[in-house]
Design a binder for these strands. Sequence first.
RNA 1: GCCGAGGUGGCGGAACCGGCAGACGCGGCGGUCUUAAACACCGCUGGGGGCGACCCCGUUCGGGUUCAAAUCCCGACCUCGGCACCA
Length: 884
Amino acid sequence: MTTSDSTTSDATLRDGRVRAERYNPGAIEPRWQARWAELRMYDTDLEDDSRPRFYVLTMYPYPSGALHIGHWYVKTPTDAIARYRRMHGDNVFFPIGFDAYGLPAENAAIKNGINPREWTMANLEKMRGQLRSMGASFAWDSEVVTCEPEFYVWNQWLFLQFLQAGLAYRAVSPVDWCPNDGTLAREQVEGTDRRCWRCGAKVEKRELAQWYFRTTNYADELLDFTGIDWPEPIRRMQTNWIGRSSGAEIVFETAPSAHHAGGQELRVFTTRPDTLYGATFMVLAPEHPLVKELTAPDRKADVEAYVRATEEKTEVDRLSTDREKTGVPIGADAINPINGARIPIFVADYVLGSYGTGAIMAVPAHDERDFAFATKYGLPIVRVIMPRDGDPDEVLTEAFVHKAADEAPADDRTHGFLEDIALINKGTDAARELVMVNSGPWDGKPAIEAWGGIVEALEARGKGRNAVTYRLRDWLVSRQRYWGTPIPVIHCPTDGPVPVPESDLPVLLPDEVDYRGSGENPLNRDEAFLNVTCPQCGGPAKRETDTLDTFIDSSWYWFRYLSPHKADGPVDTEMVRMWSPVDQYTGGAEHAVMHLLYSRFFTKAMRDLGLVTESEPFRKLFNQGQILGADGERMSKSRGNVQDPDELVARYGADAVRLFLMFMGPWDQGGPWSPTGIGGVAKFLNRVWAIATDPNGTESGDGAVAVTGDNERPVRDALRAAAHRTLRDVTEDYESFRWNTMIAKLMELSNTLFRYRGTDAVELPEWDEAVSLLLLMLAPAAPHITEELWARRLEARGEPWESIHVQRWPDYDERAVVEQTREIPIQVNGKLRDKVTVPTGISEIELEQMAMARDKVAAAIGDAEVARVIHAGGGRLVNIVLRR
RNA sequence: GCCGAGGUGGCGGAACCGGCAGACGCGGCGGUCUUAAACACCGCUGGGGGCGACCCCGUUCGGGUUCAAAUCCCGACCUCGGCACCA
C-alpha cells in the first residue's frame, strides 16, 4: 500500500526549500479505517484456542440519533485497552451493538409520526458510521441489534424458561406509574420527589397486574462479590440497594374485644427482638390487608379517612423523612407474645406496606421514629436497655438507640444491624455493658444475649423465628409500551394467562403502528395482533400487549455477541464457557443498581437454567466519569449543551479527539466539557509527525548540542534512557488506565526527541529505536497516525507492510533505565536548601560531606549543632537535623 | 439524616510507599519568523519581597504525629454522586 500520496501538501518556501509534509488527519484516518475494515482486522476468531482470550466490553449505545462526546469518552479508551491487549498477543474480542428498543423511538413516533423501527434503524445506521469514525477496533461481525427478531425471540424464550422455573410471575400490586412512560421499575424512579428517570414527570402509584422476575431469589448471592473486581462504590450501592437486614419475625395476636373475637395473627419484622418487652404499641401500614378487618366500628370513619388521605398524599409528602409522624388508632389491641401485655394498634404512614410484613412493633424507647410518634400521641415509653450502671428511672428525652451490631467488627455488619446470632458472640465488652431492664427474666443480662435468647423463647412456642428481610424487590418487567419485546403470553377467558408455546415464537412485534397522536400502546388497537386462539383450549383469547422492560435486553446481550445469529438457542454454551466472564467491562456508574445488578441476576438465573456456566457476568468493571456540558450540567438536547464529536473530528482528527479525552484528567472523573486544550494534543501529534517524517527539520528545540565524537556516547545513553524509562512508566499507566499521565509521559518523550531533531543524533540507531518505541506506545491510543507513520517507516526500509496494531508490546531494557548520576535534595530541618548531583553508588558519608560543603547548606546550619542526618528513601534525600 | 467520592496555580490536572509541591497541557506575558495575520519555533509564568546571590509564604480551614505531611490521625467547612421513615 502506498502511503505517501494523498496526504501530501508540499509547498515550496521562498528560499527554495521544500516544506515538509504536514500532518493531515483528515486524509489519513478514513483511509486506514477503510483498510482495517477491508482486511477484517478486528473480527475475532472465537474458536482460536492458541492464545489467551480477552473479552473487552463497553456498554452498547442506545441509537438516540447521534453520538455525543460522552460516547467517545467511554469507548475510545476502551478501544485503547483492546488494542493494548492485542499487542500483548491476546485474542481480543471487542464487540459492539445497539440497545435498540426503548422509549425515545416511540416518543419520536408520537411527536413526528415516524415509524419507530424506521427511526431507530436510521439512527443506528448513522451511528454505525460515527462509531467507525472513532477508529475503534470493534468486531463488527458480531454486532447485536436488540430490536431484531433474531435477538428478541430469545428474550421471549428466556421469559418462558423463567416462568417455568418460577422465576417469573404475575401479580397485582401498586406499581410506580409515570403518566408519560407507563410502568417503571423501582430503580427507575429517581429522587426524593420521585420523578421518572426518563422524562422527569412525577411518578404515581397504580394497582396493576404485572409480570415480575424473582430477583429476590438471588438477594443473598447478589451480595457476594467474591471473584469479581468491581469498584467499591458500586459494590456498596448494590449492597445498600439489596439492603439485607437480619432480625426476627414475631407473631403478635389481636386481643378479643367487643367487636372482634381476637386471636388474629399480626406478624412483624424487627431487627431488635431484644427490645420486645419495650413494645408499647403496634403500627400497621395504611396498605396493610388487615386494617379494614380489625378497625373497630367507632374508629372506622377516622381510619378510612386517614387511609384515603395517605393514598391521595403525594409521594413527596409521604416519604420526606423530617415530616411529622401522623397516625390514628384503629380501636383494637394486640397481645405481646413475650409477656401478654395488651398494646394498642395504630395505622400510620411511616410504616411502609412494601417492606417487611407491613407492620411493626413500636418500641419508642429504642427507636427514633417510634419515639417521635409516642411523644406526639402521649403513648407510654418503656426503657428495656440501659448501660450497666445506668438509672432505670431516667426519663428519656430521645430514643436510646444502640445497635449491638455496631460493636461488632465492621466487616460483619449488614446495614448496621445484627447479622445473625453468631455475631453476638463477637460483641465487644462495650456491648456487654448494655443490659436489660423491665424485661422480666432478662433483667440485668447483657442485651446481646437477650437478642437471641428472646427469639429462641418465642420460637419454642411458635411465636417467632429468626428472619432476614431485604429492601430489594422483585423486578417489575411489564411495560405498557409498543417498542419493546412482546411478552409471550395469551390471556384466555377460561384458562387465564397462558404462555405462548415455544414453537410459536417469536411473537413478532407488528411494524405497522397507529398512534393517533396519543401515548397509548398501539398494540391495544391492533386487532390482528390482539386476537388469537388460546393454546390450551383453542377458544378465542387476547394477546398480552405489554412489552418487556428494555433492561432485559441489556441483561444478557454480551452472551449473544458470542453467537449473534444462533437460531436454536439464546447462547452458545460452549462459547460462553470459553469467553465468560467478560474480562473488562466499561460504562457509567449510573447503572449501578439497574443494568449492573440485573446483569448479575440474569447470569445467575441463566446458570441455574443450565445455559451458562459462570455466576458473574463481568470480572472487572471500570466506571468512567461523566462528561458534563460546558455549564456543568448533564448533557442533554433540551439544555442545548451537547458537544457533537463530528465537528471536532473534522477539525482535529479522531486521534486528537481520542487523546484529548484521555488527557483531560483521570478516566473515572469526567467533568464539564471544555474544548480549550485540544490544541495541545494536536500540537503533540504534529510533533510526533515531524519527528517521524522529518527528523532533519529545523524548526526544532535547541536543547541538544550537535553530536560529535566526544559526546556521542552520552547522547546515545540519553536517548535510550528517555525511551526506555517512558516505556516502563507508560506500560504501568496502560495497565491501570491512567491515560492522562500516560499521554503526559509520551509528550515528554516527544519533547526530548524534538530537541534532538535537526542534529546528527537522528542518524544514531538509538534515535530510530526511540521513535519506534514512541509510535508503539502511542498506537493503542492514537491508532491512525501511528499506523500511517509505521507504514512509512516500513516503506522507507523496503520492508513489507504489517500493521502497527499487530506488533508486540515492547519490553523495556533494564540496563537502559539505570541512572548514572542522581540529583539529591538537601534539607536542613526539613527545608530544602540545595541540591547536589552525585554518582548513584555514593556512600552516605561521602554524600553527607558533599552536602555539608555546600555554601547554602553551611549558611542554613550556621553555628548550630547538627543533631543527626537522615538519609531517606535509599539515598533519595538528605535531611540535616539541628539541635534546638 | 445515612453511605460514597473529592477539595492542589488563572484553568484541566501531576506527585502510586510520608521524602524536591505544581509533571504534562491550556491560558497569559515576552521574543523569532512573516508585509501582516494564522501556523510554527524559543523563553518566562504559584504568591510576596529583594538591584542581586537569595529570602519568606503556600496543597479548604483548625489542631496533632514525625527529622520530614498535599499524603497519616482528630475535628470542622465546602462541592459532587447515591440512598432516603426499610422497623
